[in-house]
Amino acid sequence: MSQKVLDALKAKFGDAITSTENQFGDDIAWIARDKLPAVALWLRDDAGMAFDAPVFVTCIDRLDWKPLHRPVSEHFSDESGKDSRPRFEVCYQLRSSTHRHRVRLKVAVPENDSRCPSLAQLWPAFNWQERETFDMYGIRFDQHPDLRRIYLYEEFVGYPLRKDYPKDKRQPLVRRDDLPVGQKEQK
């Protein structure tokens, strides 16, 4: 659909584009994490790209996930050939209203260093969405103007949309003082 965007990205940035792929008609470019702001700035400002419409930013937790249609370690294998695929993928979906093409930028984020450059300065619409991603997945966006929880309360511990968050774990703010402590709250 917008293969020319991927080709232009590869021609312009070379090694910063780890790989490209096409999924269900959406073109995806995997970006090296530290190069993301430069790539995004060029995508926004270049006249041939002109990505002026930020669509969404979200995160995918790849805990225990193995794609069927290609080798697990296709993108992120170290020299030993062992699967060192990072746990999180941060996705930025962009669209251009002038050229009517779209592209998805993906950044691989490892679990022990869950940081990602913020694009909220380039597209202010990403501000709250990055906060939501931080709220739910614990991805820390560097240079974000105001990285706080957006949906959950400050007292909340953990990140609920991570796959290893227990689905029935509760963190109540208030309780009735006359209520006996049940088993559910003990977890």
């Binding site: 949906y151 959950l152 609920p160 968050y165 689905k167 029935d168 774990k169 509760r170 963190q171 109540p172 208030v174 309780r175 009735r176 006359d178 209520l179 559910k184």
Partner: peptide
């Protein structure tokens, strides 16, 4: 609902 955000009944807070 059985998840992180939903309260299992408002009687957790009020009678």
């Amino acid at each position: 609902y059985q998840n992180y955000h939903a309260m299992p009944g408002c009687d957790q807070v009020i009678p």
